[in-house]
Amino acid sequence: MNQNRTPLILLGGGGHARVLIDLLLEWDSYMPAGILDPELAVGSQIKGVPVLGTDEELRTQQEQGIQHAVVAVGSTRTTALRRTLYGQLRELGFEQPSLVHPSAILSSSVILGEGAQVMAGAIIQTETRIGAGAVVNTGARIDHDCEIKQHAFLAPGVILSGGVTVGENAFLGAGAVVIQGTHIGNNAVIAAGAVVVRDVEDGALVKGVPAK
């Protein structure tokens, strides 16, 4: 293991954070140096990573030389908290690296935005763009020429055929399938297991097979 890995703070200490800690421990670039979460006791540990306090501790960590942090909360239907924390880190000047699990498969032409996260077993094909703060979760499959806009959240097992656009802040539930060329609007919610065969308007909630 690289002993010169860059220290990094995680905002959040729940299930998503534990997945990210595993990702970081499998990778040789960043070291999880601490967790900030108002729901956890200072001094406790999550997978060996110490809980340092709340978000108010960010400036102290900066003063101690920490320059990197990531949003480590998950999402269920809304990405509002993730967006808020992302903005907070940007305002304070933290660098938010994109994180990719070593077992994920990405084409060399994939573009990852600031703070994007790609989890274990995901596959992302050629000419796809993943926006800032977006999450491609465990085992998701994204085919060629897709665009996942900022802060969108793809739950485990989502499948996107070629040329799909996922709007800002959209949430796609576990196992959702989207056929080729489809546009998912900003803030839309696709229920788990839905099969999307037509465009989805901004802010809509769709479910079922076919989704409506």
Rank of each mutant, 00 (worst) to 15 (best):
G15W: 06
V189P: 11
V136G: 09
E63R: 00
L172I: 10
H151F: 07
V49P: 04
V110Q: 10
A204F: 09
L112R: 10
S161Q: 08
V178D: 14
V49F: 00
E39K: 14
V19C: 07
T165A: 07
P32L: 00
G43S: 04
N169A: 10
S108C: 02
E91Q: 08
C146L: 08
S103R: 10
R59H: 12
L10V: 02
I105E: 01
L160I: 00
L8G: 04
D143P: 02
F171H: 13
R141E: 12
D199M: 09
I124Y: 04
A140V: 10
Q3Y: 11
A152Q: 07
H101W: 10
T60I: 06
G162M: 05
A174V: 12
T54M: 05
V42P: 04
H144K: 04
G15T: 01
A80K: 09
V164N: 02
T126D: 11
V189T: 14
E57M: 03
H183N: 14
L99A: 05
D145V: 01
P38N: 06
R5M: 14
R129W: 10
G87M: 05
A132T: 07
A194R: 04
V110F: 12
A188H: 12
T128G: 05
G15E: 15
A132E: 15
G131D: 02
L99P: 03
V19N: 05
N187G: 10
Y86D: 12
G193Q: 12
I184M: 05
R83K: 09
L154G: 11
V206A: 05
I142P: 13
I148K: 02
V200I: 13
G203D: 13
I35R: 00
E26W: 06
V197S: 12
D37H: 03
S103L: 11
L52R: 11
L11K: 03
A134F: 10
N137C: 06
Q150I: 00
K47Y: 04
F94S: 05
G13L: 11
R5V: 01
G157W: 01
G43Q: 11
I9T: 09
I159A: 15
H183A: 15
L20R: 05
N187Q: 10
D28H: 07
I123W: 04
